[in-house]
Every structure is written in structure tokens, then in C-alpha cells.
Design a protein around this nucleic acid. Sequence first.
DNA 1: AATGAATGAGGGTTCATTCAT
DNA 2: GATGAATGAACCCTCATTCAT
Lengths: 196, 196, 196, 196
Amino acid sequence: MGENGARKSQGDTRRRIQEVALDLFAGQGYEKTSLREIAEVLQVTKPAIYYHFRSKEEILLSIFQNLGRPVADAIAWGKAQPRTLETKRELLRRYGAALDGTVPLFRLMRENEATLRDLEVGREFNDQMTAIGELLTEPGTPLVEQLRCMGALLTLHFGTFALPHFEGSEDEKREALLSIAMEMVERAHGPEGSKV
Amino acid sequence: MGENGARKSQGDTRRRIQEVALDLFAGQGYEKTSLREIAEVLQVTKPAIYYHFRSKEEILLSIFQNLGRPVADAIAWGKAQPRTLETKRELLRRYGAALDGTVPLFRLMRENEATLRDLEVGREFNDQMTAIGELLTEPGTPLVEQLRCMGALLTLHFGTFALPHFEGSEDEKREALLSIAMEMVERAHGPEGSKV
Amino acid sequence: MGENGARKSQGDTRRRIQEVALDLFAGQGYEKTSLREIAEVLQVTKPAIYYHFRSKEEILLSIFQNLGRPVADAIAWGKAQPRTLETKRELLRRYGAALDGTVPLFRLMRENEATLRDLEVGREFNDQMTAIGELLTEPGTPLVEQLRCMGALLTLHFGTFALPHFEGSEDEKREALLSIAMEMVERAHGPEGSKV
Amino acid sequence: MGENGARKSQGDTRRRIQEVALDLFAGQGYEKTSLREIAEVLQVTKPAIYYHFRSKEEILLSIFQNLGRPVADAIAWGKAQPRTLETKRELLRRYGAALDGTVPLFRLMRENEATLRDLEVGREFNDQMTAIGELLTEPGTPLVEQLRCMGALLTLHFGTFALPHFEGSEDEKREALLSIAMEMVERAHGPEGSKV
DNA sequence: AATGAATGAGGGTTCATTCAT
DNA sequence: GATGAATGAACCCTCATTCAT
């Protein structure tokens, strides 16, 4: 159908549903977004959505598994590394980068925590958060250092969502945020940490 | 009525509604908690709730204004102070202390952000967060130092909710968390900061 | 409001729902009857129905427990008696009489068996049928006599629904049907049976 | 294709649809069985079913006309005979035999009566029942004898579905049931009847 | 101070069916 | 001989809210 042959079918609708759903979920919340609304925006009927997804939750789950892949990969990588300071630094780098590319999704996960708690997607998200927290903290070390590592993660994670409130180029801001998180985990690793 | 007349009414039911509502809102989310449920737990009928509150939102709003008072006070105090490092340190101290006494409420506000966004209670909460953020950061200073201040707040705020995951006495953990936040804002204040 | 004061409330609506529901369930089937339909006939809204009943099934269940009482009583009576021929005769008498007063309900139970199978009401109905069957048949006796007893029940039960197809007064027809069932269980009880 | 070419198509799918449909209709009811379910079991898509049948009803209708043929034949035979006692006896024999071979289908017809009432298949089934009833009863005779004949039919028909609850070989049970029905119509035919 | 009865709006979901391919 | 995509209609049910009492 020519070079511009925009084939309408073949996964097109499915993808459009995911796009619109993410938009609306992020904009007004998961519960407050009805399938009717999604269908209306897409100019299709509700059952059309059910042709592509088994349930409302499955829409979000599929989005999470598609777009959340980089974050999941970063965590998987972390789990396979030795637990050195350098691993943690690289983990923060990777996590930060992955997050940057998926801000709307992760903001949505965060802002609907209560709602998603008893959905599979919520459980998966929670497991991720727990996992990365464990990769960064060292069970045997002093409490304050454990908390500092957690603080590094919190700063990076939640700070990412707050960046728009600050002035500066995107890259500049990310860099700065990452450097702060880095310092924190380095500091937590004691004198040798600061030497690196 | 007698001098010690423990009348069941006179604000009793009202308070019980608030208690149960906070419990349920915190436990299963604001939207997922229906007035029917609250009424059932209290063994009253739905209209009884409407006798005490004009709407579902008003229940949460009243809870927020009752229990959230200490946090609001801390912020009000901060606004009235000169913007010195010592003010910020004290602000963190006060904010941390206020938060500790109201974990369920603030966890609820956090976990239902999307839902509460277009409710008055959500706006008030948001204003608070913005206000305290502004009290801690210095508009003119380098980006990284602004972000570090924000990081201090994020660490203190979100860290408080994560504390149960760590070992140690409550006081120990709070102290440690606060100290980390303190260091961060001190560090952000440059050499003079670290001198204090 | 005077001698004709037809108080609208006070269980009125609840009873009207049951009436209309029985009518429609019997007329077009349980599944094919929607709550919307019931509500329309009653000139109320769907939620009004839900104020009085927790679910669609509960409507039928309540009807079954109200109207089906006589049949249940007959069976309960039978269970409490010695298993003599006279008991069986009286049981048929009572069952037949009870059935006569509740034809629409039992026709409905019968004609929607597949649908009601996995509803509580269906299970209760089934238990009744099983129970009465067991009361009439004698486990130790020859197969043919057991089947004859069952045949007596089937004739009485299903015959009741078929009576309108025959000519004669109601009483006449009932009497005749009952006498046939009687003969069958008497015959099953052997020579002594026929002597009575 | 060869002479033994077991081609998968050519009526194969059609037959498989009928098989699965009968299974599901009988197991969970006609209404509760969706075409999606049938398609899933068969590992084909819904439109594939529509290629073979014009509608959901047509599936059941075709099953009824295929499998119900022996019963229809028995009735047709009866209509062509003189209305003697021997005809009735043979009719019961034939009807019983035909029924035995098609228990699931006729059980299904029975348990979904309300649902099928306004479908063609339901009307056909009803006509059959009416027809056989008329073949067995004698309009001019005393009411009680008419009812006894009907009782014979009811006992044979519904008894067949109840047989699994009794102990004994299949043949034994069928024989016994048939003998009871026989006796009833013989008895209805008066003294001459019992002489035969 | 609280109830009984009811409503309007809307929720997610499922169904039999169609049509272009 | 079948599929992918979609539709219109309807389903049961729940919610926050109201009002007369």
C-alpha cells in the first residue's frame, strides 16, 4: 500500500488502546478512568477493547510489562552482579536512565498505589521496588548507612518526578540528581567509597 | 446528663466515623472504600453519616485538618522564620516529628494521589508539599544544591513510610533518618553549613 | 388514612418485587428475565430492587423459601414419621396438596433446572426432590417396586403441571391424580398394601 | 484424498461442533454456554462456527433433528397405527428404547425448557411431547384412566433420567421401568387390557 | 440523631452476530 | 473453510447522594 501504507489493523488498535489508556490512567487515575472513556477517545466501542484485552487490569499490566521493561532489566542486571560499590553506582545509573524514559508509567504506579495494591500489576511493581531497595542496602551495616542508601534511591526515584519544577536542561537536572544519589551510596560505603 | 454524663452522642459518632474512615481509607484506598462499608462497620445507616458530614470528601478533609494540624503548623512556623540554615534544620526536625505522629494519614494521602488530585483535600496536601519544598530550597543557588535539599525532604518524608522495613527501635530509626536529611541540607548550604 | 389506607411502604415494595419476579421468571425463564424488566413493571429503578434484595438470586431464593414452605413442611413431616405405607400415603396427600398451591413456583424450578443448578436455590430444590424420593422408596425392596414408588412421585409431581390439559374440575383432577399415585405406592407395598 | 482419505473437513468440523455443543449445553445449560466457549474447546474461532451454522439455535436444532430422530420416528409410527392397546404398548416400547439412546439430549431439552420455549427447537420438542401424550390417552374415557396413561408416559420419560440413582444393570432397570409403564396403560384399558 | 426507601449515573463485562479478507 | 476485528445491546451490580419521616 505504498510507503505510507498505514495499515490500520495488525496490532494498531491494541497499541492505540495502550497509549490512550496510559494517558488517561496517568492523567486522572486508574479507577477514575473508565473503559467507556478510553473507547470514546479511540472512537471504538467498549467491546472492541475487550477483543484486545481480557480486562481493564490487563491493559495496565501489558503497559507495565512493555514500557517497564528497561527498569526490570536494570534490576535483573543488578541481581546478577557482585554486591560492590561499583555495582550500586552502575545500578543507580541504569535505574535512573530507565526511569527517565518511562516517567508517566511510573508516576502512575506511584499515584495509584492504594488502588493497584491488590492487582497483579501492583504486586509486580512492589516486588521491583523491594528488590532494588535490597540491592542497594547492606543488611549487616549500621542502620544509618542502610537508610542513607535507601535515601539515595528515594531521592533518585521521587526526585525524577519532581524535576519539572526546577529550572535547567533535562540532562543537567538528571545528571545533578544522579550525582546526589551517587554521593549518598558512596558515603554509605565508608572512606573507601569516597576514594573512588 | 449529670456532671459526668458520658453521652454517647455529642461528637462521639462524628469522631467514630472519622476513625473508621481513616482506617478503611488507609487500608483499602479512598475510592475503594464506600460509605456503605463505613456505615456497616459503625452499625449505623448511610444517612447517619450524611448527618455528620456533607460528603465523602468532607470526611477525609476533616480528618486531614484534624490530624494533619501538626504538619500544617510546622510549615506555618517555617514560613514565619528567616530563611537560615538553622530554620531549615528546625523545620526538618518539626516536620519529621509531626509526620511520625500521623503516618497512616500521610501514607493515605500519598497512596491515593491520583484520586485525591481534584478534591480539595488533595489540593491542600499538594500545597503543603510545595510549600515545604520551597522553604527548604534556595531559588538562587546552584541546581545541585537545590536538588539536594529536595532530596533531604524526599528522604525524610518517604523514608518515614519505609522505616518499618528496617530493624531497630522506632526512636533510633527516626533519629538516623533525620540526621541524614540534616546532613543533606547542611551540605547544600556550603562550607558554612558543614561548619555548624 | 382511613379504612382503605393502603400504606405504600412497610414491605409493600419487597412483596411486589417478589410477585412480579415470580411472574416473569415463570413466564420467560429466570435468565431471560432481567432486573431492568422487573423494575420497569414495578415503575421503580433497578437500585430500588437492590435495596430490598442483595442479588437477583436472592429474589428467587426468598420466593422459594416463602412460597415453598408448605412443600418443605410436608417433607419435614415425612422425615419425622415411621416409614410405613400409611406414612407414604399421607406424604403423597400432603405433597400433592402443597404442590397445588404453588404450581407456578415449582414449574419455574423445573423449567430452569439447568440454570438454577449452580445457584443455592437450585441446590435446595434438588435436595427436596431427593429427600422425598428417598422417603417413598424402600432401599431393600425389589427394583421394580422401588421404581414404581418413584413413578408414583413422578406422576403426581409432573402430572400436576399437566392437569390444565385435561377436562374436569380442579378438584376432580387432583383427586384422580392422587388416587393413581396412591395405588402405585400401595401396589409397591405388596399384598398387605392392596388390602388396605 | 484417496479412497480412505480421512479428510479433516467435509462435515468433520460440523460434527465436532455438534458434539461439543451437546456436551456443554447438557453440562451447563443452553444459555450459560457461549459460542466462545464452544469455539475455545474446538480450538477454532467463533466465525468458524458461523460458517457451519446460521445461529446458536441452529446448532441445537440440528442436534435435535439428528439425535432425536429415533424418538420422532417412534411417534410417527404411532400416528400411523390404529389406536389399540397393542399400539400403545409398542409405542411405549419404542419410545423407551429411543429415549435410552439419547438421554443427554432429552435431559437437556427438559432442563432448559423455559429457555427453549420460544425457540423453534423448543416448539418442536413440545409438539412431540404433546403428540405422544395424545397417542396414549383416549379422549372419551374416564378422567382417571386418561391420567393413568399420562402417568405411564411421565414415569417412563422422567424415570429414564432418574435411573442412574438406582442399583442394577442398565437393561434390568429399563425393563423394569417399561413394565411399570406398560401395566399402567394396560390397566387404563380396563378388563380386556389386563387379559392380554 | 438517625432511618427507610429510593434515585441517577455509571461501572466492568459478556454475548450473539457480522463482515471484509 | 476459516480468521481478525469490531459492534449493539444488554447484563448484574455499586456508588454517592437525597428526602420525607
